[in-house]
């Protein structure tokens, strides 16, 4: 018999229906999605890609643990978000930078950008990108010299001096003088075929080189419903349309393909721009966000002083997220337009 007299009505606020996803589960999916790119990085740059990623992940976990310990807050290392940050920061750095350098980036990303603002979900820009921006501003030389994947991979473990550095595809696509640009773009298309660009047998940051592997990871994330297709599609689509319409050299199609397969566009679009804390909530907002990222990327690549604009474009759009969210707020269920106007008039 139910004891009706002592039965209490427990009133709690919504949500009453809870999904089974956890932060840890989502982060696990993201890590799985990054593994193909990591595997390709090992194939392309040798084992140092793996050790670099491992050091970066260990650094992020350590700094997250340390901050939480020192500030006497509950430990949040087990949600795996620090692992993702560590992997991403390694992915956007050149493979041959010294280990201490990536640890400085880790410390900045985790302590200053993430934890000082309240930890997971409260950071206003992507921690890994902020870490990269700090490294780029502090160690411009190391952060912009890229290893030629054709050199002996074992040499990467040794001293840095005998490494052959190579220009990235994007640096062939930079310039203001049309004749010189046409020539260097011709060199690029001569050196690397579109297939090589797509596979990733090119110079560049550790995890950004292989468009194919990143697309595999991205499709996995979309299939697992970890990310929506809106942001990456809008981002890559905008860059593709703009570079197709306004090629600076060569044929429109060539220029477009080399633009979207070179540099960190795929990595940024699938793994950085889709970070929950720093991207809009609504699908409409995510479309706007992606278009904005694409626009800024092309503007920086065309008119800025850097070859690559993915990092800064995503960081700039991160700052617009509160506004995008504000103006794409869906209408409340049951509210019709005339009601809304009346409400505004009052």
């Amino acid at each position: 018999m139910t004891d009706y007299k002592n039965l209490k009505l427990i009133a709690t606020s919504s949500p009453h229906i809870r999904g089974s996803e956890t932060t840890q589960g989502i982060m696990k999916d993201v890590i799985i999605a990054m593994l193909p790119a990591l595997a390709f990085a090992c194939f392309n740059f040798g084992l140092r890609a793996l050790t670099m990623t491992a050091v970066s992940v260990a650094g992020c976990i350590f700094f997250e643990w340390l901050y939480r310990k020192l500030m006497k807050k509950h430990q949040s290392v087990q949600d795996l978000s620090a692992v993702v940050t560590g992997m991403l920061l390694a992915f956007v750095s050149p493979v041959q930078i010294p280990y201490w350098m990536i640890l400085i980036g880790d410390a900045f990303a985790i302590i200053i950008v993430k934890q000082l603002f309240g930890g997971i979900g409260k950071n206003f820009v992507n921690p890994a990108l902020a870490g990269r921006a700090v490294l780029l501003a502090s160690y411009a030389g190391s952060m912009t010299s890229w290893v030629d994947p054709a050199v002996n991979k074992a040499a990467l473990f040794g001293s840095n001096v005998d490494i052959v550095t190579a220009a990235t595809p994007l640096s062939y696509m930079k310039g203001t003088d049309p004749a010189a640009l046409a020539e260097s773009f011709g060199n690029l298309t001569g050196t690397y075929s579109v297939g090589q660009m797509f596979l990733g047998q090119i110079g560049g940051s550790l995890g950004e080189v292989s468009a194919l592997m990143l697309i595999i990871g991205g499709v996995y994330l979309i299939w697992r419903k970890v990310i929506n297709w809106q942001t990456p599609a809008a981002y890559i689509g905008t860059v593709a349309v703009l570079t197709f319409l306004f090629p600076k050299a060569g044929s429109s199609l060539d220029w477009m393909l080399y633009s979207i397969f070179g540099g960190g566009l795929m990595l940024g679009a699938f793994f950085m721009a889709t970070d929950y804390a720093t991207s809009p909530v609504t699908k409409k907002g995510q479309l706007i966000f992606g278009v904005g990222c694409g626009l800024f990327t092309v503007l920086i690549r065309y008119f800025g002083s850097y070859n690559e604009g993915v990092c800064y474009s995503i960081m700039v759009m991160n700052l617009f997220v509160p506004f995008i969210d504000k103006y794409t707020k869906p209408v409340r269920f049951g509210v019709v337009k005339s009601d809304k106007k009346e409400g505004a008039a009052k």
Partner: peptide, 16 residues
């Protein structure tokens, strides 16, 4: 020379 965190001498570093 190769170690210092150059960003601290920039305005960003001042704010930080």
């Amino acid at each position: 020379e190769q170690f210092p965190i150059g960003i601290l001498t920039l305005p960003v570093g001042g704010f930080l």
